[in-house]
């Protein structure tokens, strides 16, 4: 049995996950929590948010995110991939900045208009 705190929403439910019983989750108050409990112990993932350079614009950075959660082990590889990016305006929310970043299947997309 592993105790977790769900990060699905600000409520922060205290979950108990039973590894020996097909990762059955108790303590969740919604379906998201039940899914999180299982995936957190088998294949933990996070959405990565960061910024990339923008040529000659103000502000100097454009905020971005992965449009799906990526494996925790790939977070720093995603950050490194972002170092090489330089956008030029105009940028629209949702524009793909890197497709299938580091082979995770997730795209890095812009989260602000510039």
């Amino acid at each position: 049995m592993t105790e977790l705190i769900c990060i699905g929403c600000p409520k922060g439910c205290h979950l108990q996950v039973d590894e020996e019983n097909n990762y059955e989750v108790s303590g969740a108050s919604c379906e998201k929590g039940a899914a999180y409990g299982k995936i957190e112990l088998t294949d933990p993932r996070r959405v990565v948010t960061s910024t990339v350079r923008v040529k000659g614009a103000s502000p100097a950075r454009c905020s971005v995110k992965t449009n799906a959660a990526v494996p925790k082990g790939d977070i720093f590889a995603v950050m490194k991939a972002l170092d090489a990016v330089e956008l030029s305006s105009p940028v629209k929310i949702g524009d793909i900045v890197i497709a299938n970043v580091c082979g995770t299947g997730a795209d890095v997309v812009a989260t602000r208009n510039i």
Partner: peptide, 22 residues
């Protein structure tokens, strides 16, 4: 606030700060 976690109540989806403001 470029991190995500905004909008779960209002938009019923998880947005970053700039997206919520946008």
């Amino acid at each position: 606030c470029i991190h995500n976690g905004f909008g779960l109540h209002h938009f019923k989806e998880e947005l970053t700060g700039p997206e919520y403001a946008g």
